[in-house]
Design a protein around this nucleic acid. Structure first.
Length: 591
RNA sequence: GCCCUGGUAGCUCAGUGGAUAGAGCAACCGCCUCCUAAGCGGUAGGUCGCAGGUUCGACUCCUGCCCAGGGCGCCA
């Protein structure tokens, strides 16, 4: 049996040994304990506490009516013999510490060598399908740095789940319907009119960014001045309406009438497609690729919204009030009821979202994950409520929130405002600090933690920068390999010919132990949706490698020792690469 | 007012019932004739927001309070 395929088998083995000791104590010694009581076997932090430790004696002491340390002695005395165990100690309040034989750890090198890029992967998900919806930024402008965090986080979660045996489907929900799209369209039209030398101001709440000008210029290039209107009618509208919200609504109505349905739709599509393509390219450059872009508009067009509402009505979850149709979400845990159809007959965004989530269920996914900005947290209860009302299991949907990021340039905070177009785009960020640094910084904090993103730090090519620290460890291994080849001291081709038992230095022991815990870290990072665990692990692994590198010469004269060390650092290199790949960061061969 | 997140070293953060609470940065002291110093070692730094409770044991779980940020639309 491969003991360190994962730590799980080792833990299970030790658990079994303890369990049989408990049974013997209960049956032969007539100790008043339930051998089925849960207890833990865990990897220790401190090597002085052995390799694994169990709290079993503390858990059972009160049952047995003895002191934990006394019970520990009895448990240890009744432990069946095992070839893996070198020594068992009792320490502290009653911990049982297991010291394992060195050989037990060495096998991890063979396993990493064999499994290579798949080391750490597992079949936890058993091929279940999972839909991950993330980013889903409104297609009204370029992605900004907040979206970037959702992208990096979602992509990492997707990679993690894939690696532990789920079939992952990545989806972007495109909000291509609603008033905001009308505002986009009107913004494009007004910029177009300006390009045609018509004197007109942009309303305060129109989209102001330069990309709107770019779209408008392209349209003008193509169709000339076909879409212009009389200056005077615009002047009248602007004069009559000083409230910007009102003004823009009037302008939208005016444009629809003036341009006609077809031409208005032409502008709408030009604007939408330009921005959508821009977002898609931006994300692709960032290493984030989706399997599907799901159109909100398509839901209405295919009557999916009506269908969802009909189910709610049939299940008696709707009522009429003040001319609108309400969803009684309070009966399903929400704090207030929600409108699904407005007084003016239009479905709300929420109604579309109900239909969208119904579609996720209808497409047959075993599990669904939504990744939202933290500002949407008030939305969770109503979405969960709507699923229950549709007769679906809300437990199949996990909603993960990502807190916003604040940009700093050194000590100075960078102020941003989406409205005025005064914000740093994801593209600008990537260009300034590199994709690697951006991907790394975005996931190095717990997602629900507010993130301070320091541009100076992220792009500094110095020891302060944690990305380089880990990448450098990888590059350093590669460098040693190159040195070895140059001196004709390359790795043995047959790993089986090497006696790994000569890896007896404390630093080597530490590395072997660290390497063996990687599958467990991956497992935890995946089930807890916490890619930052990978980051912390990699930092520790890199640190232990750098320490080792400084303490021990790898290319020594003794050929067996040299080969064994080369195999060890090859394993380090492999695991760093695997971990970085999960979070979308490259593993350079040289730096 | 209600709901969510946070509050751990000077700063940025790990640590979801275990042993003496840990990293990085900043500070201070050392290490390149030697496989990349983008590195390593060492010193210093703490009332884990406050107060109770649960138990063999609490940064961790429960209750109350204080502080910070966010959310509470017939917007999306």
């Amino acid at each position: 049996m491969r003991l360190f395929q994962d730590n799980a088998p080792v833990k299970e083995t030790l658990e079994h040994l303890i369990r049989s000791s408990l049974e013997r104590l209960a049956q032969v010694e007539n100790l008043a304990i339930d051998p089925g009581t849960p207890f833990k076997v865990e990897k220790t932090r401190d090597p002085g506490h052995g390799d694994f430790a169990s709290n079993v004696a503390m858990m059972l002491a009160s049952q047995a009516g003895t002191k934990p340390r006394e019970l520990a002695v009895m448990i240890v005395d009744n432990l069946p013999a095992s070839p893996s165990i070198k020594k068992v100690d009792i320490a502290g309040p009653g911990f049982i510490n297991f010291f394992l034989n060195q050989d037990t750890f060495l096998d991890i090198i063979n396993i990493i060598n064999e499994q290579a890029d798949h080391f750490g992967h597992s079949d936890l998900g058993q091929g279940q399908s999972v839909l991950i919806e993330f980013v889903s930024a409104n297609p009204t402008g370029p992605l900004h740095i907040g979206h970037g965090r959702g992208a990096a986080y979602g992509a990492a979660i997707a990679n993690l789940l894939e690696a532990v045996g789920y079939r992952v489907f990545r989806e972007y929900y495109l909000n291509d319907a609603g008033r905001q799209m009308d505002i986009l369209t009107i913004s494009v039209w007004l910029r177009y009119l300006q390009a045609c030398d018509i004197q007109i101001d942009m309303p305060a709440n129109a989209y102001q960014g330069d990309y709107i000008k770019t779209i408008a210029a392209a349209i003008q290039q193509k169709i000339g001045s076909d879409f212009i209107c009389e200056q005077e009618s615009l002047n009248v509208i602007y004069k009559e309406h000083s409230d910007p919200e009102k003004l823009i609504d009037i302008l939208i109505g005016f444009a629809k009438k003036e341009l006609g349905k077809e031409n208005y739709f032409y502008l709408f599509e030009k604007g939408l497609n330009y921005i959508r393509d821009d977002i898609e390219n931006d994300l692709a450059d960032f290493g984030v690729v989706f399997d599907n872009w799901f159109s909100e508009r398509s839901l209405a067009e295919n009557h999916k919204v009506q269908e969802a509402i009909k189910i709610l009505r049939d299940n008696d979850h709707l009522y009429e009030k003040d001319g609108a149709t309400w969803f009684r979400s309070t009966s399903l845990g929400d704090e207030k009821d929600r409108v699904v159809i407005r007084e003016n007959g239009q479905a709300t965004y929420f109604a579309s979202d109900i239909a969208y989530h119904l579609s996720k269920f209808e497409r047959g996914f075993d599990k669904m994950i939504d990744i939202w900005g933290a500002d949407h947290h008030g939305y969770m209860a109503r979405v969960k409520a709507s699923l229950a009302a549709l007769g679906k299991d809300p437990g199949q949907l996990d909603i993960l929130l990502v807190q916003f990021a604040t940009l700093y340039r050194g000590k100075e905070k960078i102020q941003m405002s989406t409205r005025s177009g005064q914000y740093v785009t994801l593209r600008e960020l990537r260009k300034e600090v590199s994709n690697d640094a951006a991907r790394f910084f975005y996931v190095m904090r717990k997602s629900e933690q507010h993130l301070d993103f320091d541009l100076e730090l992220a792009k500094s090519q110095s020891q302060d920068n944690p990305v380089y620290y880990i990448q450098y460890a990888h590059a350093r291994v590669c460098s040693v390999m190159r040195q070895a080849e140059g001196k004709n001291l390359a790795r043995e081709t047959e790993i089986g010919n090497i006696d790994l038992a000569c890896l007896a230095e404390p630093h080597e022991k530490a590395l072997l132990s660290r390497l063996s815990s990687y599958p467990e870290i991956m497992h935890n990072a995946a089930v807890d949706y916490e890619p930052h665990q990978i980051v912390y692990y990699l930092r520790e692994l890199a640190n232990e490698f750098h320490t080792y590198y400084n303490a021990c010469q790898i290319l020594v004269d003794d050929s067996n020792l040299r080969s064994a060390r080369l195999e060890l650092i090859a394993s380090v290199k492999q695991v760093i690469k695997n971990g970085l790949t999960l979070i979308g960061v490259s593993a350079p061969e040289s730096m």
